[in-house]
Simulated assay, not measured.
Amino acid sequence: MLVHRSGTTGIGRTITTRWTVAGTLLAVLALLLTLPGAASAADAPARGSARMGMGVVAHDGRGGLPRDSRAVQTEGVDVSSHQGNVDWSALWNSGVKWAYVKATEGTYYENPYFAQQYNGSYNIGMIRGAYHFATPDTTTGAAQADFFVNNGGGWSRDGRTLPGVLDIEWNPYGDACYGKSPSAMVTWIRDFLNRYKARTGRDAVIYTATSWWTQCTGNHSGFGATNPLWVARYNTTPGTLPAGWSYYTMWQYTSTGPIVGDHNKFNGALDRVVALANG
């Protein structure tokens, strides 16, 4: 840092003082930007590009594939515009039997590949549903639930349509908890869930990671009795679950599937997937 040191009185001292203060402020700013969770505007991705598990590797790390527990589980996949047009035949032939497709984000984004992905998975024989990437710092939970339902996130009792998912996780665009206190975050989530149920008659699935839930909701336990849990953890086991849930319904275990999309295990045989679809 260049500091002008010539002169000890008058304007010279003033300039030196101002340069020194400015240098100190710049150094403090540089330090803050290196702290965990800090992100500059230049580092943030484009609005709308967020997808399930985007922050899991960065915050929870990447582990091995699931251990063989001998429990019956059913393979699933989740996709977004990141995958573009999906080869559903290849996924079906690989053993994938259910799928979730990103429909919306905030109240400003709709997945341009939604029709190909949502209808394509259905047409190949999968049980499928839609998910919403939440941005609690942009609009209310109720407004985002309405936007989701109005743009692909609805539900019908046809045995092939899963209830919608609230994807609530790390903010890829800024502060991890979207600038909300734990109590304010819980209120936002409750508003979304209540409006979704009022619109569809179904309790939405909550997709989250235990570490984010603990940090940003204070490990709130109030949703476990009504909302199925889809837990994200890229490791050999799902690990400790968020408070309120004694078991998971779905587990996202990797973001590097053998074909495309994030891969998941449904905690049960295919008939249990159908049961969730039927409500």
Rank of each mutant, 00 (worst) to 15 (best):
A58L: 14
A58F: 09
H59K: 12
H59E: 15
D60C: 14
G61F: 08
R62W: 04
R62I: 07
R62V: 12
R62Q: 14
R62S: 14
R62A: 09
R62N: 14
G63I: 06
L65G: 05
P66V: 15
P66K: 03
P66F: 06
D68C: 13
S69A: 14
S69P: 06
R70F: 15
R70V: 04
R70E: 03
R70K: 12
R70P: 00
R70G: 05
A71L: 14
A71R: 15
V72N: 08
T74L: 05
T74K: 01
T74F: 10
E75V: 08
E75F: 14
E75K: 10
E75I: 11
G76F: 11
V77R: 00
D78W: 09
D78S: 08
V79T: 07
V79C: 04
S80H: 04
S80T: 03
S81I: 01
S81N: 03
H82R: 09
Q83C: 09
Q83M: 09
G84I: 14
N85D: 11
N85H: 11
V86N: 02
W88N: 12
W88L: 15
S89H: 08
A90Q: 14
A90D: 15
L91N: 12
L91Q: 01
L91Y: 01
W92S: 03
G95K: 02
G95V: 15
V96Q: 13
K97V: 11
K97W: 06
W98R: 08
W98P: 00
W98M: 06
K102I: 02
K102F: 01
K102Y: 05
A103I: 04
T104G: 10
G106E: 05
G106I: 00
T107H: 04
T107M: 07
Y108I: 08
Y109M: 08
Y109A: 03
E110V: 13
Y113K: 03
Y113R: 07
F114K: 00
F114T: 00
A115T: 10
A115N: 15
A115M: 00
Q116L: 07
Y118R: 12
Y118M: 13
N119R: 14
N119K: 06
N119H: 14
G120L: 11
G120M: 07
S121N: 15
Y122L: 06
Y122M: 12
N123I: 01
N123C: 03
I124E: 07
I124K: 13
G125E: 09
G125K: 07
M126F: 07
A130D: 09
A130V: 12
Y131R: 00
H132P: 10
H132S: 03
F133R: 00
F133Y: 13
T135I: 06
P136S: 05
D137T: 07
D137Y: 13
D137W: 12
D137S: 10
T138A: 00
T138G: 01
T138K: 02
T138M: 01
T139N: 15
T140R: 10
G141A: 09
G141Q: 10
G141R: 01
G141D: 07
A142M: 12
A142L: 05
A143H: 02
Q144Y: 01
A145M: 04
A145Y: 08
F147P: 09
F147C: 05
N150E: 04
N150W: 05
N151E: 05
N151K: 15
G152D: 09
G152L: 07
G153Q: 01
G153S: 13
G154W: 08
G154S: 13
W155L: 12
W155S: 15
